[in-house]
C-alpha cells in the first residue's frame, strides 16, 4: 500500500525530485571544481609525484645516468651512512641554518628603518631589494671579486690602509669558505625578507606604540613587545622558508667555489654532495639516496620548526 500524503504535506516524489536536482547540481559543481583542479593536478603529478617516486626507486639502484639502472637494494643507504662526506655535508647544511636567525633579525631591523614616512624612502626600499632580484651567478661573481686575494675589494682596501699585512683568506681557507658564502646568502636575502616584514609592519596598529610610549616604554621595548608579537605570523613564515632555503643552498656555493665546494670540501653541503655524486661522478642511484634522506630531513625540520614557532605563538596569546 502506497501511503497517501496528508493534505499540505510535501509530495515525496517532488521532494525526491528536488533532492535529486540538488544532488545533480552538487555533483556538477564538484565535477566543475575537479575540472578546474585537473590541469594543475596533471602538472603536479607529472612533474612532482612521478619524479618523487622515481627518485625513491632510483635510490635502490646503481644508476650511472647513461645506462639502465640495476637494483642493489639497500646498498646505497648502507654506504651513505658510512660515508664521511655525507656527514660533513649534513653538518654543513645545518651550520648553514645560522643564516636564518641572522636574516630574520637584520630584515626586521631594516624593515623597521624603512617603515617611516620619509620623502624618498621608496628609493632605499628599492635599493635594499635589488640583491633579491639579481642573478645569483652575478652576485657570486661580484663577491668573488670582493673576496679575491690578494687584491680584491676588501683585501685591497685593508692592505692599502695598512690594517692587515697579509690578505684575508676568505675563499682559500677551510675555516672561512663556508662563512664567506653564508655572508653572500645573507646579503642576498635581507632585501627579500625585508619586504615581507615591511608588509607585516603596516598591519601593526599605530595606537599600540602610542600607548606604550605613554606607559614609558622606550623604542627597543616597543619593538620587542609590540612589533615582534605583531608580526609573528610573518616571522614564522620567514623562518620556515629561509631555513628550507638554507638547507637547500647550492648556487652560491657552486659559483663562489667554482664548482669545487671549497678547499678540503669545506663548503660541501648535502645538496652540493648530491650534485657531485649525481652529475660529476655519475652515481645517480647514490645521489637519489642522498635526495631521499635530504627530503626527510627537510620535511622533519620544517614540521618541527612550524610546531615550535606555533607553540610559542599560542603561549604568548
Amino acid at each position: 500500500m502506497v501511503s497517501t500524503p496528508y493534505p499540505g504535506s510535501p509530495d515525496p516524489l517532488a521532494a525526491e525530485a528536488i533532492a535529486q536536482g540538488k544532488r545533480r547540481r552538487e555533483r556538477r559543481r564538484t565535477l566543475t571544481a575537479y575540472g578546474f583542479l585537473l590541469p594543475s593536478f596533471v602538472f603536479f603529478f607529472i612533474f612532482l609525484i612521478i619524479p618523487l617516486i622515481t627518485v625513491v626507486y632510483l635510490s635502490f639502484t646503481n644508476y650511472n645516468i647513461v645506462t639502465a639502472p640495476q637494483w642493489v637494494g639497500m646498498d646505497n643507504y648502507t654506504r651513505l651512512f658510512q660515508d664521511p662526506l655525507f656527514w660533513r655535508g649534513l653538518r654543513n647544511s645545518f651550520i648553514y641554518l645560522v643564516v636564518t636567525p641572522i636574516l630574520i633579525t637584520l630584515s626586521i631591523a631594516l624593515a623597521i628603518v624603512v617603515n617611516r614616512k620619509l620623502r624618498g624612502i621608496f628609493v632605499f626600499r628599492t635599493i635594499y631589494y635589488i640583491p633579491a632580484v639579481t642573478s645569483v651567478v652575478a652576485v657570486g661573481m661580484i663577491f668573488e671579486i670582493v673576496f679575491a686575494e690578494p687584491s680584491g675589494l676588501i683585501n685591497g682596501v685593508l692592505l692599502a690602509l695598512g690594517w692587515i699585512e697579509r690578505p684575508l683568506n676568505f675563499l682559500t681557507h677551510p675555516d672561512s669558505t663556508l662563512i664567506s658564502v653564508m655572508l653572500v646568502t645573507i646579503w642576498r636575502g635581507i632585501g627579500f625578507y625585508m619586504v615581507i616584514f615591511l608588509a607585516a609592519l603596516q598591519a601593526v596598529p599605530e595606537e599600540l606604540y602610542e600607548a606604550a610610549a605613554i606607559d614609558g616604554a622606550n623604542r627597543f621595548q616597543q619593538h620587542l613587545y609590540i612589533t615582534v608579537p605583531g608580526i609573528r605570523p610573518a616571522i614564522i613564515f620567514v623562518a620556515i622558508i629561509s631555513s628550507i632555503s638554507a638547507l637547500k643552498v647550492f648556487e652560491e656555493i657552486f659559483v663562489m667555489t667554482d664548482g669545487s665546494a671549497g678547499v678540503l670540501d669545506s663548503a660541501l653541503t648535502l645538496m652540493f654532495y648530491l650534485y657531485r655524486q649525481g652529475f660529476v661522478n655519475l652515481n645517480a642511484g647514490y645521489a637519489a639516496a642522498i635526495a631521499v634522506i635530504f627530503t626527510i630531513v627537510t620535511l622533519g625540520f620544517s614540521i618541527a620548526n612550524l610546531r615550535f614557532l606555533e607553540r610559542g605563538s599560542r603561549d604568548n596569546r
Binding site: 690578494p150 683568506n169 678547499v263
Partner: peptide, 15 residues
Amino acid sequence: NDYIPRASLTDDVRE
C-alpha cells in the same frame, strides 16, 4: 711563504 698566489688553491684555468 707566498711565493705563489694563494688563490691558486681555488683558481681554474680561466682565472
